[in-house]
Design a protein around this nucleic acid. Structure first.
Lengths: 226, 226
DNA sequence: ACATAAGCGGAGAGGTGCTTCCACTTAGGC
DNA sequence: GCCTAAGTGGAAGCACCTCTCCGCTTATGT
């Protein structure tokens, strides 16, 4: 690749961020699809080779396109993020503050169970993936607002903290093993219990909650749960 | 080792199950101690070599004494089991059925958080470790009785299922990452919420729980949570 | 059609953990 | 003190995963 620019007609192509050859672009898609499936089924730790095999390409191709596991995960869960963000927006748009709050929790927890690795990707988040950072801030803002509104509507107990949402996600994560159907049923029941406990008329002044743990969404990082 | 039994005075020794040479017995203790620490700090997946190093013995020694990781875990968590069993007994002995039920949950959850790998050992349980099986049956019986009594006392909601206790443990397991102090605080708060939801006066007939997931204590097996 | 850069796959280097083998050391009964 | 079986540690054989290098293939503009 000499700096000599006498003829650059060749490498021109679509020039955009997707300036890939047609076949390469196609392969990229296949890899993403394969990774999506593999992550969902086996968790984010699946060997890169397994993804490559499933995609029908060599490992080298995989690595060329996504130099790090992180970059692959980031890309794969991009739309999952979008879905998650949409969930927040929907919740915020709901005129019934409590219903918004409630369905938000229910939906996110279901997502978490159905697609293993989603949480890991979203919250465990590789610290330096910029987009994640942005999304997370956005998420945190939405959650705060949802909480505020649900309290204002007089349905959410006053001693509920935004950090408790992290608590829910972490707890729900513990549920996400075993066959999806079972896990989903378990998750639904757990969430139902928790939502009942979160309602204002269930707070018992004679029996106050222990202080909230200092948990931010980023505390799901050290995912070492086994 | 010729079958010739002309002089068997040698290999006699204490003959009991602990018929080990003094130094070997000593090493065995050191291994157990090291394993206990390692499991608690790093989880049950710590490399065998790490345990050996910490114990100041060679890997071979470790493997000779505990041919499988399972056998080591079984041995290490034996007393932890005893503690757990005692918790059940205490709970059953409490004249206040609800208090018994409640403190049982609180204590077990705390144990689960403080000593990672405890759950894994106890519930994930290697299917064939006989003692575990027995302990688990015993545990299940105790839990059933505790549940029954708490309901009879009119404090525990009627639609609570014994399987929900598994739910609590699984949820709590999701909490157990991060520094112990934080995890403990989080766990305490989660448990408090759940206990409130479990009380009879919080059940809302207009808003029934989703059906319980078919979870037995043994469903914590496929521990792949990450 | 052809030249050329882009793309490709597989082999293999390097790292980590599990488990076994084997030559050496040592406890402990005589 | 001596002898022997019991015990020991480290090295080596596997298996698995990550990531890179390199010679071959193929799309694509002219």
């Amino acid at each position: 690749m000499p700096a000599n620019s006498s003829r650059l007609s060749h490498a021109a192509a679509p020039a955009g961020p997707t300036g890939l050859r047609a076949d390469a672009r196609h392969n990229r898609e296949r890899i993403l699809q394969a990774a999506r499936e593999a992550f969902a089924e086996l968790g984010i730790d699946v060997p890169m080779a397994a993804i490559a095999r499933r995609a029908g390409v060599g490992v080298a191709t995989l690595y060329r396109r996504f130099p790090t596991r992180e970059s692959l995960v980031t890309e794969v869960f991009a739309d999952q993020f979008a879905a998650c963000a949409k969930t927040f927006d929907d919740a915020l748009a709901d005129p019934d503050a409590w219903r918004g709050f409630r369905t938000m929790i229910e939906k996110v927890c279901a997502m978490q169970v159905v697609d293993r690795g989603f949480t890991a990707a979203f919250l465990t988040a590789f610290p330096d993936a910029i987009d994640y950072e942005r999304e997370r801030t956005r998420a945190e803002r939405g959650l705060t607002e949802l909480t505020r509104r649900a309290k204002a509507a007089g349905r959410l107990r006053a001693d509920f903290e935004v950090a408790d949402l992290t608590l829910v996600l972490m707890a729900n994560r513990g549920i996400a093993s075993g066959p999806t159907e079972t896990a989903l049923a378990a998750s639904r029941r757990l969430v139902a219990y928790l939502l009942q406990a979160f309602q204002v008329d269930h707070a018992d002044p004679a029996d106050p909650l222990p202080p909230p743990a200092p948990l931010g969404l980023d505390h799901l990082r050290n995912a070492q749960v086994r």
